[in-house]
Design a protein around this nucleic acid. Sequence first.
DNA 1: GAGTGGTCTAGACCACTGT
DNA 2: CAGTGGTCTAGACCACTCC
Lengths: 233, 233
Amino acid sequence: MSGIAINNWQDVQAEVLDRIHSRVWKPGDQIPKETELAAEFGCARATVNRALRAVAEAGFLDRKRKAGTRVATHPIRKATLSIPIIRHEIEESNRAYSYALEAASIKKPPAHIQAKMDLAADQMAHHSKALHFANNQTFASEERWINIHTVPDVQELDFTKQSANEWLVANAPFTHGNISLLAIMADLDLANRMGVAEGTALFGLNRTTWDSDNSITTVKLVFHPGYALHTKI
Amino acid sequence: MSGIAINNWQDVQAEVLDRIHSRVWKPGDQIPKETELAAEFGCARATVNRALRAVAEAGFLDRKRKAGTRVATHPIRKATLSIPIIRHEIEESNRAYSYALEAASIKKPPAHIQAKMDLAADQMAHHSKALHFANNQTFASEERWINIHTVPDVQELDFTKQSANEWLVANAPFTHGNISLLAIMADLDLANRMGVAEGTALFGLNRTTWDSDNSITTVKLVFHPGYALHTKI
DNA sequence: GAGTGGTCTAGACCACTGT
DNA sequence: CAGTGGTCTAGACCACTCC
């Protein structure tokens, strides 16, 4: 007996995780089928299914029709990263947020931006640079391109007060996007804008968002020295 | 009419996402309750629940008992990051993986490691340094501390052939852990070990894993210049 | 107190996939 | 082809939380 009554899918999940963790079920082992576990736990198969699905999503089980359910051999797999909105991140730590637009214009993007946003060779786009501050210290710099075909309204807006990101979030919903995380060495321009030494290693995040097949915006965020992204597994 | 028959929870999810995306339901709006949607779509409430739960997990909806379901005002929230096992990552790109242990010993860890692993002040730990190669080029460096109280077997092992990580994954299952992602400027030692110029900006990942309240291991991985982590949202 | 989402059940059928 | 997980249904009760 496991000693604890099983009444809901969380209990089943806890019991399953305990068996994996205590190596009753070892990595690579096939575990009993849903109907057997349901009988053992005295609950419906749907409840077992709910629990096993959750554990599989967390990466500890591999499930396949017909082949059954096996304990994952390499459980270090998925981490959920919450991508913060800069203003929220700063305000949640009780610091004062401020924002400064450095430049904004419509111009032809360089080739690597055209490729990233799937723009035609002669297509113009909205370009902007801005800085985000926490308690008047530079927190992050942002360089952004916006697709003016997908988001025509952007040409009439004033981003000196409201950040482009906040306007876009509220007014140009996206269907999907991709994110890259990388280390960046500050060049002279970036170093000057952010008030750090040239060559400083900075944490960077590139994000491109899409409305179906149409790119909306691509942004390169570079954070202050010492910034780190945290997550639990 | 939406024109497409709704037969399963994925269809419901697609329809819900489409309504959010096309702004039939705007950010902050309360959407119809589950029973109403079930009636509209001609399916069971459980099916609607399954779909809405999935959309909420993706961050596009906020759900509360009694208060109902609302469209999230800030959908940019969660990204699932798959933390790769280095050997797999290299082999999947059809490059030859190799590994070199540089040092291994039992010694007293520095204070910040003691704090990170919740070790007593006089407690010793297993320390190792290693390099990972892809096609004989340096791919990443690793510096690791292992809690010899939680994992006593580690003292009898030879990590010259098998990497510590692979042994730990198979033999010391963890219940939870935390990960930090950051940018690192190569100091002289790191630069020499990795064959890069001093001061190069490198992508780093720190991970500590736990077996309930006992730390298992903490590792600092530093990747080659140009390395980036990718994810979709 | 009442309304909404959260979950359970029992049974059924479907879909993928290994043999 | 057969076994396993994937999903649907209809109804029920529970738990949280706003008023």
